[in-house]
Measured scan of single mutants.
Amino acid sequence: MGFKLLSKLLVYLTASIMAIASPLAFSVDSSGEYPTVSEIPVGEVRLYQIADGVWSHIATQSFDGAVYPSNGLIVRDGDELLLIDTAWGAKNTAALLAEIEKQIGLPVTRAVSTHFHDDRVGGVDVLRAAGVATYASPSTRRLAEVEGNEIPTHSLEGLSSSGDAVRFGPVELFYPGAAHSTDNLIVYVPSASVLYGGCAIYELSRTSAGNVADADLAEWPTSIERIQQHYPEAQFVIPGHGLPGGLDLLKHTTNVVKAHTNRSVVE
Protein backbone atom coordinates (compact mmCIF):
# COMPACT_ATOMS: atom_id res chain seq x y z
CA MET A 1 0.00 0.00 0.00
CA GLY A 2 1.47 3.42 -1.01
CA PHE A 3 2.09 6.05 1.66
CA LYS A 4 -0.34 8.52 0.10
CA LEU A 5 -3.11 5.92 0.07
CA LEU A 6 -2.29 4.92 3.64
CA SER A 7 -2.41 8.55 4.80
CA LYS A 8 -5.80 9.06 3.21
CA LEU A 9 -7.06 5.82 4.75
CA LEU A 10 -5.94 7.02 8.20
CA VAL A 11 -7.87 10.27 7.72
CA TYR A 12 -10.97 8.32 6.70
CA LEU A 13 -10.70 5.94 9.65
CA THR A 14 -10.19 8.81 12.08
CA ALA A 15 -13.27 10.57 10.77
CA SER A 16 -15.29 7.34 10.91
CA ILE A 17 -14.31 6.68 14.52
CA MET A 18 -15.27 10.23 15.48
CA ALA A 19 -18.62 9.92 13.78
CA ILE A 20 -19.39 6.74 15.73
CA ALA A 21 -18.12 8.12 19.02
CA SER A 22 -20.09 11.37 18.72
CA PRO A 23 -23.01 10.90 16.34
CA LEU A 24 -24.79 14.09 17.34
CA ALA A 25 -21.79 16.38 16.97
CA PHE A 26 -20.24 14.93 13.85
CA SER A 27 -21.54 14.83 10.33
CA VAL A 28 -18.35 14.05 8.43
CA ASP A 29 -18.44 14.89 4.75
CA SER A 30 -18.82 11.68 2.76
CA SER A 31 -18.13 13.35 -0.58
CA GLY A 32 -14.51 12.22 -0.75
CA GLU A 33 -11.02 12.20 0.69
CA TYR A 34 -9.17 15.15 2.16
CA PRO A 35 -7.83 17.27 -0.73
CA THR A 36 -4.09 17.02 -1.37
CA VAL A 37 -1.63 19.45 -2.92
CA SER A 38 -1.68 17.70 -6.30
CA GLU A 39 -5.44 18.17 -6.57
CA ILE A 40 -5.59 21.93 -5.98
CA PRO A 41 -4.16 24.34 -8.58
CA VAL A 42 -2.59 27.49 -7.16
CA GLY A 43 -5.31 30.14 -7.03
CA GLU A 44 -8.08 27.69 -6.22
CA VAL A 45 -9.46 26.63 -2.84
CA ARG A 46 -11.20 23.50 -1.60
CA LEU A 47 -13.52 23.15 1.39
CA TYR A 48 -13.75 19.94 3.41
CA GLN A 49 -16.54 19.45 5.93
CA ILE A 50 -15.21 17.91 9.13
CA ALA A 51 -18.32 18.18 11.28
CA ASP A 52 -21.68 19.90 11.39
CA GLY A 53 -20.82 23.57 10.98
CA VAL A 54 -17.05 22.98 10.79
CA TRP A 55 -14.95 22.99 7.63
CA SER A 56 -11.30 23.20 6.75
CA HIS A 57 -10.21 25.29 3.79
CA ILE A 58 -7.28 24.11 1.73
CA ALA A 59 -5.25 26.19 -0.72
CA THR A 60 -1.86 25.84 -2.40
CA GLN A 61 0.94 28.30 -3.01
CA SER A 62 4.22 28.32 -4.94
CA PHE A 63 7.28 28.94 -2.80
CA ASP A 64 10.95 28.49 -3.72
CA GLY A 65 10.08 26.48 -6.81
CA ALA A 66 7.71 24.05 -5.09
CA VAL A 67 3.98 23.98 -4.40
CA TYR A 68 2.73 23.57 -0.84
CA PRO A 69 -0.73 23.06 0.66
CA SER A 70 -2.07 25.24 3.46
CA ASN A 71 -5.00 24.64 5.79
CA GLY A 72 -7.38 26.96 7.59
CA LEU A 73 -10.68 26.59 9.42
CA ILE A 74 -14.27 27.78 9.01
CA VAL A 75 -16.74 27.54 11.91
CA ARG A 76 -20.42 28.39 11.83
CA ASP A 77 -21.50 30.97 14.40
CA GLY A 78 -25.28 31.18 14.20
CA ASP A 79 -26.13 32.65 10.81
CA GLU A 80 -22.55 33.81 10.28
CA LEU A 81 -19.14 32.25 9.78
CA LEU A 82 -15.87 32.64 11.66
CA LEU A 83 -12.77 32.21 9.50
CA ILE A 84 -9.48 31.02 10.92
CA ASP A 85 -6.50 32.10 8.80
CA THR A 86 -6.38 33.40 5.26
CA ALA A 87 -5.76 31.18 2.25
CA TRP A 88 -2.15 32.40 1.80
CA GLY A 89 -2.37 35.43 -0.45
CA ALA A 90 -4.88 37.85 -1.94
CA LYS A 91 -5.85 35.71 -4.94
CA ASN A 92 -6.37 32.59 -2.84
CA THR A 93 -8.31 34.46 -0.17
CA ALA A 94 -10.64 36.00 -2.75
CA ALA A 95 -11.18 32.50 -4.14
CA LEU A 96 -11.86 31.28 -0.59
CA LEU A 97 -14.62 33.84 -0.05
CA ALA A 98 -16.17 32.91 -3.39
CA GLU A 99 -16.05 29.20 -2.54
CA ILE A 100 -17.63 29.81 0.86
CA GLU A 101 -20.45 31.78 -0.76
CA LYS A 102 -20.97 29.00 -3.31
CA GLN A 103 -20.87 26.02 -0.95
CA ILE A 104 -22.05 27.36 2.41
CA GLY A 105 -23.95 30.53 1.57
CA LEU A 106 -23.38 32.29 4.89
CA PRO A 107 -21.39 35.50 5.39
CA VAL A 108 -17.90 35.52 6.88
CA THR A 109 -18.07 38.29 9.48
CA ARG A 110 -14.91 37.71 11.54
CA ALA A 111 -11.49 36.24 10.87
CA VAL A 112 -8.61 35.31 13.17
CA SER A 113 -4.99 34.97 12.04
CA THR A 114 -3.05 32.49 14.17
CA HIS A 115 0.41 33.97 13.57
CA PHE A 116 2.19 36.64 11.56
CA HIS A 117 3.51 34.68 8.57
CA ASP A 118 2.08 35.30 5.12
CA ASP A 119 0.28 31.95 4.98
CA ARG A 120 -1.90 33.22 7.87
CA VAL A 121 -2.23 36.96 7.18
CA GLY A 122 -1.70 37.15 3.41
CA GLY A 123 -5.15 38.14 2.17
CA VAL A 124 -6.24 40.11 5.25
CA ASP A 125 -6.69 43.19 3.05
CA VAL A 126 -9.09 41.20 0.84
CA LEU A 127 -11.08 40.19 3.91
CA ARG A 128 -11.17 43.76 5.19
CA ALA A 129 -12.40 45.03 1.81
CA ALA A 130 -15.17 42.43 1.94
CA GLY A 131 -16.36 43.78 5.30
CA VAL A 132 -14.81 41.05 7.43
CA ALA A 133 -13.52 42.13 10.86
CA THR A 134 -9.97 40.80 11.14
CA TYR A 135 -8.36 39.83 14.45
CA ALA A 136 -4.99 38.70 15.78
CA SER A 137 -3.07 38.88 19.02
CA PRO A 138 -1.12 42.10 19.72
CA SER A 139 2.07 40.09 19.22
CA THR A 140 0.94 38.87 15.80
CA ARG A 141 -0.07 42.37 14.73
CA ARG A 142 3.28 43.78 15.84
CA LEU A 143 5.33 41.03 14.18
CA ALA A 144 3.32 41.30 10.96
CA GLU A 145 4.09 45.02 10.83
CA VAL A 146 7.80 44.40 11.39
CA GLU A 147 7.79 41.74 8.66
CA GLY A 148 5.96 44.01 6.23
CA ASN A 149 2.99 41.63 6.07
CA GLU A 150 -0.70 42.53 6.12
CA ILE A 151 -1.93 43.48 9.59
CA PRO A 152 -5.28 42.36 11.06
CA THR A 153 -7.28 45.32 12.36
CA HIS A 154 -8.35 44.22 15.83
CA SER A 155 -6.33 42.92 18.79
CA LEU A 156 -7.21 39.76 20.71
CA GLU A 157 -6.59 40.37 24.39
CA GLY A 158 -5.86 37.81 27.10
CA LEU A 159 -3.42 35.68 25.10
CA SER A 160 -0.05 37.05 26.17
CA SER A 161 1.14 34.29 28.55
CA SER A 162 1.74 30.60 27.87
CA GLY A 163 -1.40 28.64 28.71
CA ASP A 164 -3.80 31.57 28.22
CA ALA A 165 -7.16 30.72 26.64
CA VAL A 166 -10.10 32.92 25.63
CA ARG A 167 -13.49 32.15 24.15
CA PHE A 168 -14.12 33.74 20.77
CA GLY A 169 -17.60 32.96 19.50
CA PRO A 170 -17.87 29.22 18.74
CA VAL A 171 -14.17 28.50 19.38
CA GLU A 172 -11.56 28.73 22.08
CA LEU A 173 -8.27 30.42 21.26
CA PHE A 174 -5.23 29.08 23.11
CA TYR A 175 -1.69 30.37 23.36
CA PRO A 176 0.53 27.37 24.16
CA GLY A 177 3.78 29.31 24.17
CA ALA A 178 6.41 29.74 21.49
CA ALA A 179 6.74 26.99 18.89
CA HIS A 180 6.79 27.50 15.09
CA SER A 181 6.72 31.19 15.97
CA THR A 182 6.59 33.10 19.22
CA ASP A 183 2.99 34.19 18.61
CA ASN A 184 1.33 31.01 17.27
CA LEU A 185 -2.22 30.36 18.48
CA ILE A 186 -4.20 27.11 18.63
CA VAL A 187 -7.93 27.00 17.89
CA TYR A 188 -10.33 24.49 19.43
CA VAL A 189 -13.95 23.84 18.45
CA PRO A 190 -15.49 22.32 21.61
CA SER A 191 -18.79 21.38 19.96
CA ALA A 192 -16.96 19.06 17.56
CA SER A 193 -13.69 18.16 19.37
CA VAL A 194 -11.73 19.67 16.47
CA LEU A 195 -8.26 21.05 17.20
CA TYR A 196 -6.66 23.37 14.66
CA GLY A 197 -2.95 23.41 15.38
CA GLY A 198 -1.84 25.73 12.62
CA CYS A 199 1.86 25.69 11.82
CA ALA A 200 2.76 24.60 15.35
CA ILE A 201 1.63 21.08 14.37
CA TYR A 202 2.99 18.92 11.53
CA GLU A 203 1.24 16.33 9.40
CA LEU A 204 2.37 12.72 9.90
CA SER A 205 4.20 12.51 6.57
CA ARG A 206 6.48 15.40 7.44
CA THR A 207 9.95 14.36 8.53
CA SER A 208 11.82 17.68 8.45
CA ALA A 209 11.27 20.82 10.48
CA GLY A 210 11.02 23.09 7.45
CA ASN A 211 10.92 26.84 8.06
CA VAL A 212 12.14 27.39 11.61
CA ALA A 213 13.59 30.87 11.11
CA ASP A 214 11.17 32.34 13.65
CA ALA A 215 10.77 29.22 15.80
CA ASP A 216 11.70 28.60 19.41
CA LEU A 217 13.02 25.05 19.07
CA ALA A 218 13.80 24.70 22.77
CA GLU A 219 10.30 25.73 23.88
CA TRP A 220 8.32 24.02 21.11
CA PRO A 221 8.03 20.56 22.77
CA THR A 222 6.85 22.17 26.03
CA SER A 223 4.24 24.18 24.14
CA ILE A 224 2.95 20.99 22.53
CA GLU A 225 2.69 19.41 25.98
CA ARG A 226 0.47 22.31 27.01
CA ILE A 227 -1.78 21.67 24.02
CA GLN A 228 -2.04 17.98 24.91
CA GLN A 229 -2.84 18.77 28.53
CA HIS A 230 -5.42 21.43 27.66
CA TYR A 231 -7.25 19.43 24.97
CA PRO A 232 -6.91 15.71 25.77
CA GLU A 233 -10.40 15.14 24.37
CA ALA A 234 -9.55 16.45 20.89
CA GLN A 235 -10.42 13.90 18.21
CA PHE A 236 -9.62 15.58 14.88
CA VAL A 237 -6.37 17.55 14.59
CA ILE A 238 -5.63 19.84 11.64
CA PRO A 239 -2.00 20.85 10.97
CA GLY A 240 -1.10 24.08 9.24
CA HIS A 241 -0.06 22.18 6.13
CA GLY A 242 -1.05 18.73 4.90
CA LEU A 243 -3.33 15.95 6.03
CA PRO A 244 -5.21 15.99 9.36
CA GLY A 245 -5.26 13.17 11.88
CA GLY A 246 -5.56 12.62 15.63
CA LEU A 247 -3.59 13.62 18.69
CA ASP A 248 -0.71 11.51 17.40
CA LEU A 249 0.22 14.53 15.28
CA LEU A 250 1.33 16.28 18.47
CA LYS A 251 3.79 13.57 19.44
CA HIS A 252 5.01 13.33 15.85
CA THR A 253 5.68 17.07 15.75
CA THR A 254 7.66 16.88 18.98
CA ASN A 255 9.76 14.04 17.56
CA VAL A 256 10.52 15.98 14.36
CA VAL A 257 11.44 19.13 16.27
CA LYS A 258 13.69 17.25 18.71
CA ALA A 259 15.40 15.39 15.86
CA HIS A 260 16.08 18.68 14.11
CA THR A 261 17.45 20.21 17.30
CA ASN A 262 19.71 17.22 17.93
CA ARG A 263 21.08 17.34 14.38
CA SER A 264 21.76 21.06 14.74
CA VAL A 265 23.71 20.46 17.96
CA VAL A 266 25.81 17.72 16.33
CA GLU A 267 26.53 19.86 13.28
Rank of each mutant, 00 (worst) to 15 (best):
M1C: 02
G2C: 04
F3V: 09
F3M: 13
K4E: 14
K4M: 14
L5D: 09
L9A: 07
L10E: 10
Y12H: 07
L13I: 15
L13G: 05
A15K: 15
A15Q: 12
S16M: 15
A21E: 07
S22A: 09
S22W: 14
A25E: 05
A25T: 08
F26E: 04
V28E: 07
V28N: 15
S30E: 11
G32F: 05
G32H: 07
Y34R: 12
P35D: 12
T36N: 08
T36L: 06
V37Y: 12
E39Y: 14
E44Q: 06
V45E: 02
R46G: 08
L47Y: 00
Q49N: 15
A51L: 08
W55L: 03
S56I: 04
H57L: 02
T60S: 11
S62G: 07
F63K: 05
F63E: 10
F63V: 05
G65R: 07
A66F: 09
V67T: 07
Y68C: 06
Y68V: 07
P69V: 06
S70K: 02
N71V: 08
L73P: 03
I74Q: 01
D77A: 05
G78W: 08
D79E: 13
E80K: 15
L81M: 11
L82M: 13
L82P: 03
L83F: 03
L83K: 01
A87Y: 00
A87P: 14
G89R: 09
K91N: 11
A95T: 13
A95L: 12
L97K: 04
A98H: 14
A98S: 09
E99T: 14
E99I: 14
I100M: 14
I100W: 02
I100F: 02
E101D: 14
E101N: 13
K102N: 06
G105T: 08
V108L: 08
T109K: 15
A111Q: 15
V112E: 03
T114Q: 00
H117K: 00
H117Y: 00
D118C: 08
V121H: 01
G122C: 04
G122F: 04
V124K: 03
V124G: 08
D125N: 05
V126C: 06
L127E: 01
R128F: 14
A129I: 05
V132L: 13
V132N: 03
A133G: 09
T134A: 11
Y135P: 01
A136H: 03
S137D: 03
S137W: 11
S137Y: 03
S139D: 14
R141M: 05
L143M: 06
L143H: 12
A144M: 07
A144H: 03
V146P: 10
V146L: 09
E147H: 15
E147Q: 05
E147D: 08
N149E: 06
N149K: 09
I151C: 08
P152V: 12
H154S: 13
H154C: 05
L156T: 13
L156R: 02
L156N: 03
G158K: 15
S160Q: 12
S161I: 11
S161D: 13
S162F: 12
A165F: 10
G169T: 03
G169F: 13
G169R: 05
P170Q: 15
P170G: 12
V171W: 02
V171K: 00
E172V: 14
L173E: 02
L173R: 00
L173I: 12
P176W: 00
P176L: 02
G177I: 01
G177P: 00
A178K: 12
T182D: 11
T182M: 15
D183G: 01
N184Y: 01
L185R: 01
I186R: 01
I186Q: 00
I186P: 00
Y188E: 01
V189W: 00
S191P: 04
A192Q: 12
A192D: 06
S193Y: 11
V194R: 01
V194G: 03
V194P: 00
L195F: 03
G197N: 04
A200Q: 14
I201T: 05
L204A: 12
S205L: 12
T207D: 14
T207N: 15
S208P: 14
A209N: 04
A209Q: 15
A209Y: 12
G210N: 14
G210Q: 14
A213G: 11
A213S: 11
D214N: 06
A215N: 06
L217M: 13
L217I: 15
L217W: 08
A218I: 07
E219S: 12
W220Q: 00
T222S: 10
S223R: 03
S223W: 02
E225W: 12
I227C: 01
I227H: 01
Q229G: 12
Q229K: 10
H230A: 09
H230W: 11
Y231G: 01
V237N: 02
I238Y: 14
H241S: 00
H241F: 00
G242A: 02
L243Y: 14
L243I: 12
P244G: 14
P244T: 12
G246A: 09
L247Q: 08
L249D: 01
K251T: 05
T253W: 00
N255L: 12
N255F: 05
V256Y: 14
V257Y: 02
V257R: 02
T261N: 13
T261P: 10
T261Y: 11
R263I: 06
E267V: 11
